[in-house]
Amino acid sequence: MKYLCLVYYSEAAMQERGDDHWQSLNGECSAFGEGLRESGQMLDGSALQPVSTATTVRVRDSQVHVTDGPFAETKEQLAGFYLIEAGDLNDAIRIAGRIPPARYGSIEIRPVRDIHGESSRAVPYAESLNKD
């Protein structure tokens, strides 16, 4: 199965840890990604520029609306992603647990959906989710 691992952490807290920490974390991430790629478990992935560089686009009534900033303001910001190939969720959890920033922020694991697969069954409970 394919999973997208979304890496979140607090940019502010990360900044407070200073430049040395930042450089060594980046080194660690790059080595980790390298290893994952070699073992064939990493399909894609990248770090992202800080959330201050984000732009949000919406189309309503055929009009394109562009705003500054992310889709939602959160305590932790999306900082990067790994698209991985894993046998099952346990396997994916094992990989996610080794992503270096997991020690500071959090990794959200999302199974990738086949867009040509089943129809609206992919979000069958969205309605009920909103209710509670």
Binding site: M1, A86, G87, D88, L89, N90, I109, P111, A122, P124
Partner: peptide, 25 residues
């Protein structure tokens, strides 16, 4: 009932394996 249906849905979609965890976990 809804809670159970949703849980089964997640087991299927998220690939929660039908297995006993290995020694490490």
């Amino acid at each position: 009932a809804q809670r159970i249906v949703r849980a089964k849905q997640k087991i299927r979609s998220a690939g929660i394996p039908y297995d006993v965890p290995g020694e490490r976990e």
